[in-house]
């Protein structure tokens, strides 16, 4: 009864910034950050579905997920960096990632997303199984 009254009192507020939505975003943000810090990546894979569930269009959800993960990655990268990262390894990997990133972005419009997504999932599955083995 009480909650219903509140919802009627701020109909516009309720519609735009539903409290439930804010809490689910806060929770998803915390989970994305935790995964990103613990495993050194993958936070975007949690932020993205949360944004899609909140009703944002796909492209905006992708862009915003990136904006969520970047500051989180920056913070945890600093923590990891103090653990020591040899430059001889960092250099080739980041050069490769940057080159690959440009390549991937250029290829993206020419690929069939559905098929690609399934292939990628199968690859992830295989990698997961392999990493469970000693």
């Amino acid at each position: 009864m009480k909650t219903r009254k509140k919802a009627n009192f701020f109909p516009r507020f309720h519609k735009l910034f539903a409290v439930k939505k804010i809490f689910s975003l806060l929770f998803a943000g915390g989970a994305a950050g935790a995964v990103n810090g613990l495993f050194g990546g993958g936070g975007g894979m949690i932020a993205l579905p949360a944004l899609e569930r909140a009703g944002y269009p796909v492209r905006a959800a992708h862009a915003t997920a990136l904006a969520v993960v970047l500051p989180a990655s920056l913070v945890s990268a600093a923590v990891y960096f103090f653990g020591g990262v040899p430059l001889a390894v960092l250099l080739p990997v980041s050069l490769g990632v940057t080159a690959g990133g440009l390549l991937g972005a250029a290829l993206l419009p020419r690929l069939r997303e559905g098929l690609l997504s399934v292939l990628f999932s199968l690859l992830m599955f295989a990698a997961g199984i392999r990493m469970l083995l000693p």
Binding site: L26, A31, G33, G37, G40, G43, A54, A63, T64, V79
Partner: peptide, 26 residues
């Protein structure tokens, strides 16, 4: 393409928890 109303409630806890869990990972 950045949705500011969703960005803050996601990014703040994300930054906080990523620092904590990066320390935990160490």
């Amino acid at each position: 393409l950045l949705k500011k109303d969703a960005l803050l409630p996601l990014a703040l806890p994300a930054a906080l928890f990523s620092a904590l869990f990066a320390l935990l990972a160490a």
